[in-house]
Structure formats: structure tokens, C-alpha cells
Amino acid sequence: MAPTRAEIMGLYRSLIRAAREFCDYNIREYTMRRTVDGFRKNQKLTDSNSISSAYLEGKNQLAVAKRQAVVYSLYAPKVKSVIELEKLIIH
């Protein structure tokens, strides 16, 4: 059975939220970007089978992101990336 629109949007929001949890700058940016681009690309899907499989794939990726955000936080370097420091000074 194909997921509802509300379920899909829920998955999208969860993925973005999970992405934000990554303490590593590059991984965080990538996970957000990949989520946005992935959902944008799959927007055009009409076949309910491919929608279901894309949804399931997203669910799996969410589980991975949630686990790995924890792992990354356990071994986070004290010092941030120079790119992030730049941002901190500006804000």
C-alpha cells in the first residue's frame, strides 16, 4: 500500500531533523542536501509501487541517520571545521 502524503511529509521532516543532529559539518550538510534532492526527484513518481519502495528506502535511511548521528556525537572532535567558525563569527 502506498504511503499517504502526510506520511511522506512526516518522513521528510524526520530526515531533516535527523540530519541536523550530525555534529560533523560535511555529513550534516550532505544529509540535508541529499534528503531535499531525493524528495524533489521522487516528487514526480506516480506509480504506487515505486512510491512505496522510495518511502521504504527513506525509512531505512532515517534509521541509519539516527544511529550514525549518535555515533558521530560520541567521537566528535572538540574543534569545529573552519567553515563553521566563520559562520559563528558572522552571526
Binding site: I27, Q68, V71, Y72, V79, S81, V82, E84, L85
Partner: peptide, 26 residues
């Protein structure tokens, strides 16, 4: 002395491990 961790642009030397890869390995 560097203020932060340098940005990494040396992907031919080696690449960071993808979190999806680490997730499979752990």
C-alpha cells in the same frame, strides 16, 4: 596553529567514510 579543522579537499589521498558504510560495518 589553526583555529578550526581545515576543510578537506584531498579526496584522491583518501575519502571520509560514508555514514551509511560505517552503519553497515559496526
Amino acid at each position: 596553529k589553526i583555529a578550526g579543522r581545515p576543510l578537506y579537499l584531498d579526496m584522491q589521498a583518501t575519502t571520509p567514510v560514508d555514514p551509511r558504510v560505517l552503519d553497515a560495518m559496526l
